[in-house]
Design a protein around this nucleic acid. Structure first.
Lengths: 145, 145
DNA sequence: TATAATGTGCTTGTGTTAGTTGCAATTGAT
DNA sequence: ATCAATTGCAACTAACACAAGCACATTATA
């Protein structure tokens, strides 16, 4: 999976990979190791583990350690939304900017902008909540349920 | 202006700098050189020229070459919206992803996701259209009109 | 116990963006 | 006409964010 231009200016870069991983988990309907998922999405096992762990802490997938371990969906494909995934992979990359060094007035302006952008992002997440993984899968023949 | 963590996962990085620049132009209500603007927003003249040029092609500012040249607003602060600015600084960084190399099905899935994200971004822009530069300025004492 | 997986720290690679320099073209002041 | 100040633009460098990849401790199961 290339890490070139993302095409749109919204969403963390991991978002699409996370969706791909969940789609494959939904299709297999089984436990899959990070290595197997990485193969399917042309990524790498270690990176997938990090992404899948973010999905695990929000309860979208469950991780099992040890032999025969891996990841398995904890919710049905028609219950998981793109908004859920966006939120899950955003955690940890949404700390507020450190204070800018362009003066008091500039800093205040920046804070106000930050508020507005935060609000816009929340609305984006709401918008993405209308699409479930099942919806997305049904848009592609190969994954159709 | 730090280029560290952006705090939110939406908008091109230049967005906030572009807003700052326009706010200063609105406050001064006069022609300002790239060097003067760069000073105000703690950035650099050449970089500001790049950003301001994007704002010029969409008609938000006007650029004048030569001695006594610089940039000046072409619209009133209460007519320029954050959505306009977002669109302006997004041009040229929103080409679609190159085709991913994770198989036909994966590529199709990716295209569908891309459509959904594009739609989400358009809605973000619409959302940002409700805020004018004048609104933003009135949120900060120093810039209050 | 041996095996196969996750979790995670660390290093390396790479693409994107900002910073910087240099200079031609342009425009107004003198 | 000359000079000074500015944009526009190309090229290069630097910084940063993120993914890729390795190593290994930990964990769980056959």
């Amino acid at each position: 999976m290339s890490s070139a231009n993302r095409g749109v200016n919204i969403g963390p870069p991991r978002f699409k990979i996370a969706v791909h991983a969940i789609v494959w988990l939904a299709k297999s309907n089984n436990i899959l190791s990070s290595a197997m998922i990485a193969d399917q999405v042309s990524s790498h096992a270690t990176f997938m583990r990090r992404v899948l762990q973010q999905l695990a802490v929000t309860g979208i997938v469950e991780s099992r350690g040890g032999r025969e371990g891996g990841y398995i969906l904890r919710q049905d494909a028609c219950q998981i939304t793109l908004g859920d995934i966006y939120s899950a992979v955003s955690t940890g990359c949404a700390e507020p900017d450190e204070d800018v060094d362009c003066g008091e007035a500039g800093a205040q302006l920046d804070q106000e902008l930050e508020k507005i952008l935060y609000e816009a992002e929340q609305q984006t997440i709401d918008h993405l909540r209308q699409y479930t993984i099942a919806d997305v899968m049904n848009r592609v023949d190969f994954f159709k349920i």
